[in-house]
Structure formats: structure tokens, C-alpha cells
Amino acid sequence: MFFDFSLLQPLGWRHFFFRQLTLEQLERYTPARVVNLERNAVRADTGGGSFPVTLCSRLLFPDDPIARPTVGDWLLVEPGTNRAVERLERSSLIHRLRPGESSDSQAIAANVDRLLVVAALTREFNLHRIERYLVIAAQAGVTPLVVLSKADLCPDPAAVAGEVSRRLRGAGDVVALDLLRDSARDALGAWLDAGTTLALVGSSGVGKSTLLNNLAGIRRQATGATREDDDKGRHTTSSRSLHRLPGELCLIDVPGLREVGLPPVAGGVARRFAHIEALAPECRFADCTHQGEPGCAVRAAVQAGGLTADELDHYLRLQAEEAANTRRREQRSRQQDKAFGKMVRATLRAKRERQGR
């Protein structure tokens, strides 16, 4: 079977995915990218428009929930039946702790190149919430870009952008925009390379759908107003979806996230706060917690003005949260392994008893 792979390039197809295919897979299946996910309904695209896809049982019920296909994933689809039989290895994955009491991760978007974090310059502006997204981006190995929307409602948007930029410390960029008047494509042009996939995240009402429409040049998503009493918005995006934009861009629009729990995987906080991690070896004690021990190089940096007290405090809180989530996940994994081993032993014991009769 011959397939024109040039049709996939506007969807973000690249050599990283092509080299995963075997000759048999090239002959039997067609690569398709997941462009919409709502509950168990999956739609994919091969370059000619989206169509419904049926997931095989192995993809629908994987051992690890994080392995289940999400928006942005590449699937191998059987022509004629539209049945997905394989998910290709991901180049990146944006995920968070699943809301509630779960210790599992929830996949948000796959194979993302840049994370667009949208925050409105209103009373609801929260630097710590932005920093949570930056940890998630660091965990995924994705470059963040912070878009400060509703700049017309802020007396000094440049000052706020400068504050956020200082917290980023070169790990990404910050742009303040009035999305109803400014051209997002002009302002963000340096980050909009052909073939790039961006994921759009933020709270409800911050202007994500307005930003999508601005970049597309046409109305792709409905937009809604925020409540006047608290500046909070309602969900105008109800499902995760991938939109193809002019210039061979892909943008994954994610419904507003109420909770931004850190994924139960170690490393994101350390990568995000690498400048603090670099100071730790200079502390007098190897097990210094940076919370009052003598000879602490991190506290010394705060006193010298190279680090703010708020930045250090948030780092310590995020570090503790990540460690707790990771421990909970590992504990649950051990419990599952123990339960599985118990089941196997019981099955073998019953089999021996039947054979001994």
C-alpha cells in the first residue's frame, strides 16, 4: 500500500515517528493523528479531514492509564475499518495529576513542541499557577511561552510581564497582549515555525479560545464572558481538540483546568528550578532543606537578592508536592504488584490441587 506522507507534514509528522515504523506496518496501516477526544469518542486525521477511530482493546484499556491515546498522539489505523492498532512512541507528553484522590497521571496533550500558558491580567492573575504550568512543561521537556491576555485591563502590563520573565529565568518567553486588538500571529511569530505543535492551557475565561481565533484569523471556537464579581470564566471549550492553523501549525486547545496538580514523576521541579538546585551543593550540610540550617547557600542567595523569598518558598512547596505524589504512585504500584502476585500464586495453587486429584 502506498501512502503520501507529505499529507501528514502539516499535522506535525516528522522523522522521529517515521523511523518507528516497520516495513509490515508501512504496507498494512496508515498513520493518523488524534485531533479530537471527548470521553471515549476519538477522531483522527490523515491529512484529508478528521474521521472517527475505533481503538483496539489494548489501546483502550492499557496497563498504565497514561498510555491511553490522547490528543496529539499518532496512531496506526487499519484502512477500511478505521481501527487503531498501535500508538507510536511520543516525543513529549503534557500531563498532570488526575484530579481527585487518584495517584495516576492524566494525559493532556502528546507530541507537543511548545506550551502556551495563557493567564489574564485581571484580579485572578496568579504567578504561582503559572509556575505550576512551567514545572509541567519542564517535566515534558517542552519550551513554555507565557501569554498575558487582557493587557488592556492592566495599568502596567509591561511591569507584570517583566516580573513573570524574571521568574522564568530564560526558560521561556513572556508576551502581553490585548487579544481583541493585537495580532497574536505578529507578536508570536518567532515561535510559530511550520510543523510546530503548540498546546494551549490556562484557566477558564483567560482568553484561550480568543487566542485560538486570533491565530487562526477566523472564529474556530466560541468565546464567553467572565463574571464581573470575581473575573472567573466558564468553559467554552468542552473537549480537547487539535486545530490546523495557517502556516502548517497545529494548536491543541485544552478546556480550562481547575486543578494543576504536579504529575507523580520526579524531575520536573528540579528542572524548572535548576538555578536553585545548582546552589544546593554549596550548602554546608549535604541534606540541607534550605529552611533555616546554618551555612545554607540558598538562603544566602535570598539575602543577597539573587533569589526572592517567594520563589524559594514556592519551590519548596512544589518539591514537597511532587515527592508526595511520586511516593503515592509508587506505593500504589507496589500494592498492585503484590495483589497480582497473590492472584498468580492462588491460580497456581488451584491448578496443582486440580492436577493432584
Results as ranks from 00 to 15, higher is better:
280 A>Y: 11
280 A>P: 07
280 A>I: 10
280 A>E: 12
281 P>D: 01
281 P>H: 02
282 E>W: 15
283 C>G: 10
283 C>H: 07
284 R>G: 05
284 R>E: 06
284 R>D: 06
285 F>Q: 01
286 A>P: 02
286 A>T: 15
286 A>I: 13
287 D>Q: 11
287 D>F: 13
287 D>A: 09
287 D>P: 08
288 C>D: 02
288 C>N: 03
289 T>I: 01
290 H>Y: 15
290 H>L: 10
291 Q>T: 13
291 Q>S: 12
292 G>R: 13
292 G>L: 13
292 G>E: 12
293 E>W: 03
293 E>T: 01
294 P>D: 03
294 P>V: 00
294 P>S: 02
294 P>A: 02
294 P>I: 05
294 P>H: 03
295 G>Q: 05
295 G>V: 03
295 G>P: 01
295 G>D: 06
296 C>P: 01
296 C>I: 01
296 C>W: 00
297 A>Y: 08
297 A>G: 09
298 V>C: 09
299 R>L: 15
299 R>Q: 11
299 R>N: 13
300 A>M: 06
300 A>W: 06
300 A>L: 09
300 A>D: 08
302 V>R: 02
302 V>L: 09
302 V>D: 05
302 V>Q: 05
303 Q>A: 15
303 Q>G: 11
303 Q>P: 07
303 Q>Y: 08
304 A>S: 06
304 A>F: 02
305 G>W: 10
305 G>P: 04
305 G>D: 08
306 G>M: 12
306 G>N: 15
306 G>Q: 14
306 G>C: 11
307 L>K: 01
307 L>C: 05
308 T>G: 05
308 T>V: 06
309 A>T: 02
310 D>S: 12
311 E>S: 10
312 L>P: 01
312 L>H: 07
312 L>E: 04
312 L>K: 04
313 D>T: 07
313 D>P: 06
313 D>K: 11
313 D>L: 10
314 H>E: 14
314 H>C: 10
315 Y>T: 01
316 L>H: 05
316 L>I: 12
317 R>N: 12
